[in-house]
Design a binder for these strands. Structure first.
Length: 262
DNA sequence: ATGTCAGTTCCAAACTGA
């Protein structure tokens, strides 16, 4: 089965590209981030063959999961802070996603806070949010349900994941505290699907600034990730970044990452 | 500081967020 993740930077603005991409690529499951509005085109996506669940808010954030098979929403909020109202988290179950009799697959769609600028409340929120996520990831590992976590994690894991480390040194996505938390997730047993299959290939990114011809000159960063629980490590068949949607008219600043599980 | 795009708002130039 094919599962993709894409920060669309407004579902409304990206629907023309998303529609064509779904028809061409035909992923079984799609995780979307940065919907940027209360409206969600569930009926239009249903007509394209996808069930969906979405968590939206006005103007900002917003996450959704699309699935060719029916999905069951488990949670629309990340545990650990009742005051947190951002639409950044969606946990669903998809029955038999890995084939008949395979049981439920847990799919978690994330839009981790950006955290810029460093030294502000926004950065503190990013760290606290990530710590809450790590606690939840610990609980998932203690259960038997195989789990895929995917989304815009807003972390550049290593120097290899950006065109030029020096130019990201002051950015929230590249701070030691942020990279350490991502490394902690890997240390707990979560597998970075893309990096596992491409262990020493630099220059492979999922995001490029809109300005200064960043895409054309490949000055980008790898911040959209898939993490696999141990039960799924042996099922990882492929994981690629699809640059095609970033080359189209009116693109998102992110492009999809597509993973194959067997 | 700059660059660009999307959403929002005293409806349209200026803001916020990324």
């Amino acid at each position: 089965m094919k599962i993709a993740s894409w920060n669309v930077n407004s579902i409304k603005a990206r629907m023309p590209i998303l529609r064509g991409w779904l028809e061409t690529v035909q992923p079984d499951v799609v995780l979307l981030q940065e919907l940027k509005g209360l409206e969600f085109p569930a009926e239009e996506l249903r007509a394209l063959g996808y069930h969906s669940a979405a968590v939206t808010q006005k103007s900002y954030n917003g996450v959704a999961v699309l699935s060719k098979q029916p999905l069951e929403v488990v949670s629309t909020t990340l545990a650990g802070d009742d005051e947190d109202s951002h639409a950044r988290f969606l946990e669903v179950l998809i029955e038999d996603a890995l084939g008949a009799g395979s049981g439920p697959l847990r799919v978690v769609c994330l839009y981790v806070p950006n955290g810029n600028p460093v030294g502000t409340e926004k950065f503190e929120y990013k760290l606290r949010w990530t710590d809450r996520l790590i606690e939840q990831m610990r609980l998932w590992l203690a259960e038997t349900t195989p789990t895929v976590i995917g989304g815009d994690m807003n972390v550049i894991p290593t120097d290899m994941d950006c065109h030029k480390p020096a130019s990201w040194a002051k950015d929230a996505l590249f701070q030691p505290e942020v990279k350490a938390r991502y490394a902690q997730m890997l240390g707990m047993g979560w597998m970075d699907a893309f990096r596992t299959l491409h262990p020493d290939q630099g220059g492979l990114f999922t995001y490029w600034d809109y300005f200064r011809n960043a895409f054309e000159t490949n000055r980008g960063i790898r911040i959209d990730h898939f993490l696999l629980s141990p039960a799924l490590h042996g099922r990882l068949v492929g994981c690629e970044i699809d640059r095609a949607p970033r080359m189209m008219e009116k693109p998102s600043d992110h492009t999809p990452i597509v993973m194959e599980l067997g």
